[in-house]
Computed example of a mutant assay.
Amino acid sequence: MSRPVRLAIVDDHTLFRSALGQLLNAEDDIEVVGLAGDAQGALDLVKETSPDVLLLDVEFPGPGVVPTVQTLRRVAPRLHILMLSMYDSPTTIQELLGLGVRGYLLKSASDAELLAAIRRVVADPRQVVLSVTSKLFEAVPEHSSGNLSDREIEVLSLASLGLSNAQIGRRLDLRESTVKRHMHNVFVKLSAVSRIDAVNKASRAGLLRNPGH
């Protein structure tokens, strides 16, 4: 994009978010538009500054990261959310990716990794960025693909065609929230970290159906 990337940071550690803000604001193609330390601050910040990218800590005061992300996605559906955390919990990562966050990075990531992640998600709307330890993938057991329900297979088959949750809902006469719940269950059962990962795993297992039949 020709103008600088508008970026906001939410972290409950004042020194960390201030230092990170100064670091990122020194880049010619990034403009830090605001900092916040809790869930309400994050929501107010996004409404007031309309950032392109939000760096969001996983743990902060408020109702919790999942409802906060859900609210942010509803208020600003075009916002690119990148999670920052001290821990790489498989369950947390799967759940947040299922909600539409664009990446998950450990706070131990290098400056170069963080900058690359920010630029990548803005440049490519299909890109999902993960910067985690290899132990994450070792810790996630392979679930039996046969555990998917008929409805979950139906939803995933439509997702494999590139349909959005809303489009899948219209095809199956389901609420979008119901489609999201099915997709979340698919992520957990297949130990998938993205839609593409879930589709690939289901395809290898021969689970995908022709939606026309």
Rank of each mutant, 00 (worst) to 15 (best):
Val155Ser: 03
Val140Ala: 15
Leu136His: 08
Val128Arg: 02
Leu130Met: 13
Ser131Phe: 08
Pro125Arg: 11
Gln167Ser: 11
Ser164Lys: 05
Arg126Ala: 13
Ser131Tyr: 05
Ser144Glu: 12
Ser134Asn: 09
Ser160Leu: 04
Val155Glu: 01
Asn165Gln: 14
Ile153Glu: 02
Asp150Asn: 09
Gln127Trp: 06
Gln127Lys: 09
Asp150Thr: 03
Val121Gln: 13
Val129Phe: 10
Gly162Trp: 04
Ser134Tyr: 07
Glu138Trp: 06
Val129Tyr: 07
Arg120Asp: 10
Ser134Glu: 10
Val128Thr: 12
Arg151Tyr: 01
Ser144Asn: 14
Val155Trp: 02
Val129Leu: 11
Val128Asp: 02
Ile153Cys: 00
Ile153Val: 15
Gln127Ile: 06
Ala123Cys: 12
Leu163Phe: 07
Ile153Asp: 03
Ser145Gln: 11
Leu136Trp: 08
Ser160Arg: 02
Ser164Cys: 02
Ser157Gln: 06
Leu156Arg: 01
Arg151Cys: 01
Pro125Trp: 04
Ser131Ile: 15
Leu148Cys: 05
Asp150Met: 04
Glu154Gly: 02
Ala139Cys: 09
Asn147Arg: 13
Leu136Ala: 08
Leu136Arg: 01
Arg120Leu: 15
Gly146His: 12
Leu158Cys: 02
Glu142Val: 14
Arg126Ile: 06
Leu156Tyr: 07
Gly146Leu: 14
Ser131Asp: 12
Leu130Asn: 06
Ser149Ile: 15
Val129Gly: 05
Val132Glu: 10
Asn165His: 13
Phe137Ile: 11
Gly162Glu: 14
Ser149Gly: 10
Val132Leu: 05
Asp150Pro: 04
Val129Met: 10
His143Met: 11
Val132Pro: 11
Leu156Thr: 08
Val129Ala: 10
Ser145Asp: 09
Arg126Gly: 10
Thr133Gln: 09
Asp150Val: 03
Val140Gln: 15
Val132Arg: 02
Val129Thr: 10
Ser149Pro: 05
Ala159Met: 04
Leu163Gln: 00
Glu142Asn: 11
Glu142Arg: 14
Ser149Val: 13
Val122Pro: 08
Leu148Gln: 03
Val129Asp: 06
Ala166Ser: 13
Pro125Phe: 03
Leu158Asn: 01
Glu142Ala: 14
Glu152Ser: 04
Leu163Ser: 00
Arg120Ser: 15
Arg151Glu: 08
Leu156Val: 07
Pro141Gln: 12
Ser164Ile: 06
Glu154Ala: 08
Val155His: 03
Ala139Trp: 08
Pro125Val: 07
Ser160Phe: 01
Ser134Leu: 07
Val128Ile: 13
Arg120Met: 13
Asn165Val: 00
Ala139Asn: 14
Ile153Asn: 02
Asp124Gln: 13
Val155Phe: 02
Ser145Lys: 08
Val121Ser: 09
Glu154His: 01
Thr133Ser: 13
Ser149His: 09
Ala123Arg: 12
Ser160Lys: 04
Val121His: 05
Leu158Asp: 01
His143Arg: 14
Ala139Gln: 14
Gln167Gly: 01
His143Trp: 09
Lys135Pro: 02
Leu161Phe: 05
Asp150Tyr: 00
Gly162Lys: 03
Val128Met: 06
Leu156Ser: 00
Ala139Ser: 15
Leu136Cys: 05
Ser157Leu: 05
